[in-house]
Write a protein that binds this DNA or RNA. Structure first.
Length: 560
RNA sequence: GCGCCCGUAGCUCAAUUGGAUAGAGCAUCGGCCUUCUAAGCCGACGGUUGCUGGUUCGAUUCCAGUCGGGCGCGCCA
């Protein structure tokens, strides 16, 4: 809808620029939904922006623009208001046209082609396989997966990636912890490894290892060697065991990855070494104190960073650089890395490393999406521990406490860069206070209306309905129509700006407008024209709710 | 000390990316159940957008400073 108005304006502005009516090209104006009805349905700020460059009064410029606007059957009238806004009042037919489009496009309504089939790699979660996924990973999974769905909906070819830090010190720790459990050592014993993982799940891994179990994850099968002294065998078994566990939780959360990338492969393939050599060859490194340093300060980092330690091993961020290089080489001109904000300190050095390769990676690549902490509240108190993992609440705990739908919705409903309070009691509530319930109920209500029609042998004639949409009157139906028509632009904005919470918020608003209308007006009236028109709008609303919930990975139930 | 994020109604949060009179839900208060689901509905109250300056036609939004909260500042990952 916005696009149609944009075309009218661009046409007028180009025309004026050519024939000298305005001595400037079209500015980067915006068309926005108005806050209040007095200002029409849409407003444009083009005249205000031109005032500066032209040195003329904005209201005068607005008058010139309005005079040059081509006629449109969507627009009822145009007004100039305030400091120089151009306000558009749309014809009812414009809203009706949008309802037709919803019913015609069905599950595709709200989708677009702005991505033009380009590839985007979205990396998220990327947890270490050293324990169950916690609430932070849960937020990462919800944000990353929703972003992926939004990108798909806007025409991108999306690859979901999970990067496993399956090498390094924490994995050695994992193996030692499992070995200790195998030997019957408890976390409180003086023989327990210094930084061992204390959660109960370590005991489960140890038990399965001793039982000679076979575990499978990411296409790898590992059978337990049962030998308590074979630390390497324990490590392989434990890593695969935990990967399987994480996969199961993610799948239960509705998240499936296309690529699982193992850090260890970067060592075995020599990629880490190649990165170091390349950076050195380009002259962006130096040796000092027995270590090899990256001149990260050349590329905007606070200080130079050690790449190869004096003991000959590499620091953790090199595999990160090598991994991102692999993304670049695999053709992700667009790459998004979703991380907890506690990692933001490492972004500058990874980017510096990528720049130091001198292979033409743009400075702003990859794009980062960071999320802040999650606090879980229940019964008015913060929940901090779970038996299974010990010191933190797991994704599985959340799903068990709040259910899949509420967990996904709640984790996505807040802007990712602000801290989030997850209220378990609210998430479980079967009342309208719970936004998930409220939205799903709106969807179920339309289905209920449909069932009623069936019971009463009322037939909905879509073609007939579409001819009588002008029977939809009143502010409530109007609010629903306007709400429905906002869906495509909401999806686009949410994807472009990496702000999936906009969609969650939008669905809540649309459900609200629908419930108000439902409560104010009877749909199944005797007047056939009116009834069909109302049912058509109800079906359109249901379609948008279903499409939107689908993009959040939340179900749209037919009854509740 | 330095860097990043946040600060909006009593509470939880929005605000179309610089737009017009800052909006929802909860809580509080006042009205409502003969209805396609009362698991609700309608209305009212509620604000110096932490604070001080600046940029401009216009600032919750951008800049500088300041206060408060979170996170990060390793040859750990």
């Amino acid at each position: 809808m916005k696009d149609a108005l944009r075309e009218l304006l661009l046409h007028a502005l180009d025309q004026l620029h050519r024939d000298g009516g305005l001595d400037a090209p079209a500015p980067a104006f915006v068309i926005e939904r108005t806050r209040s009805r007095e200002h029409g349905d849409f407003a444009c700020n083009a005249a205000l922006l031109l005032a500066k460059t032209l040195g003329r009064k904005p209201r005068d410029i607005a008058g010139v623009i309005v005079g040059a606007l081509p006629a449109s059957k969507l627009v009822e009238r145009v007004e100039i208001a305030g400091p120089g806004f151009i306000n558009f009042f749309l014809c009812d037919a414009a809203w009706h046209e949008e309802i037709r489009r919803v019913l015609h496009d069905g599950a595709h309504y709200g989708h677009s082609r702005v991505g033009a089939g380009r590839a985007v790699g979205i990396e998220f979660v990327s947890a270490n396989p050293t324990g169950p996924l916690h609430v932070g990973h849960a937020r990462a999974a919800a944000i990353g997966d929703t972003l992926a769905r939004l990108y798909s909906a806007t025409g991108w070819k999306v690859w979901r990636e999970f990067y496993y830090n399956d090498a390094g010190a924490q994995i050695a720790n994992l193996a030692l912890s499992v070995q200790a459990r195998i030997r019957g050592i408890e976390p409180d014993s003086p023989h327990w490894p210094a930084d061992g993982y204390r959660g109960d799940y370590i005991r489960d891994v140890a038990r399965d290892y001793l039982d000679g179990a076979t575990v499978e994850a990411g296409g790898e099968r590992v059978s337990a060697a049962k030998d308590p002294d074979d630390l390497d065998a324990i490590r392989r078994f434990a890593v695969t065991w935990l990967r399987r566990e994480q996969d199961q939780d993610l799948r239960a959360f509705g998240v499936v990855f296309d690529v699982y990338f193992l850090e260890s492969s970067l060592y075995t393939d020599g990629k880490v070494q190649q990165v170091v050599e390349r950076i050195a060859a380009q002259g962006h490194s130096y040796e000092a104190d027995g270590a090899l340093w990256l001149r990260a300060t050349e590329f905007g980092d606070d200080k130079d960073r050690v790449m190869r330690k004096s003991d000959g091993t590499y620091t953790y961020f090199l595999p990160d650089v090598a991994y991102h290089l692999s993304k670049w080489e695999r053709g992700y001109k667009h790459a998004i890395t979703e991380l907890g904000a506690d990692h933001h300190g490492s972004l500058a050095r990874v980017k510096a490393g990528l720049q130091a390769l001198d292979i033409g990676i743009p400075k702003g690549w990859p794009q980062y999406v960071l999320h802040q902490m999650v606090t879980v509240m229940k019964g008015g108190e913060e929940v901090k521990i779970s038996k299974r993992a010990g010191s933190y609440v797991t994704l599985r705990d959340l799903i068990e406490m709040a259910g899949l739908d509420a967990t996904r919705y709640f984790l996505i409903a807040r802007k990712s860069d602000s801290q989030l309070v997850f209220d378990i009691d609210l998430a479980r509530a079967q009342t309208n206070d719970n936004p998930v319930y409220y939205i799903q109920y709106a969807h179920a209500r339309v289905c209920s209306v449909q069932r009623q029609m069936h019971e009463r042998s009322i037939v909905f004639e879509e073609l007939h309905a579409l001819k009588h949409l002008d029977r939809l009157d009143g502010e409530h139906a109007r609010a629903v129509m306007a709400g429905v028509s906002r869906f495509p632009e909401t999806v686009e904005t949410a994807a472009e700006n990496h702000e999936p919470h906009l969609l969650a918020q939008y669905l809540r608003d649309l459900a609200g407008a629908f419930h108000v209308w439902y409560n104010a007006e009877q749909f199944l009236v005797d007047d056939e024209d009116l009834r069909n028109a109302r049912v058509a709008l109800a079906y359109a609303t249901r379609q948008v709710l279903a499409n939107g919930l689908g993009m959040l990975g939340v179900s749209a139930p037919e009854s509740m």
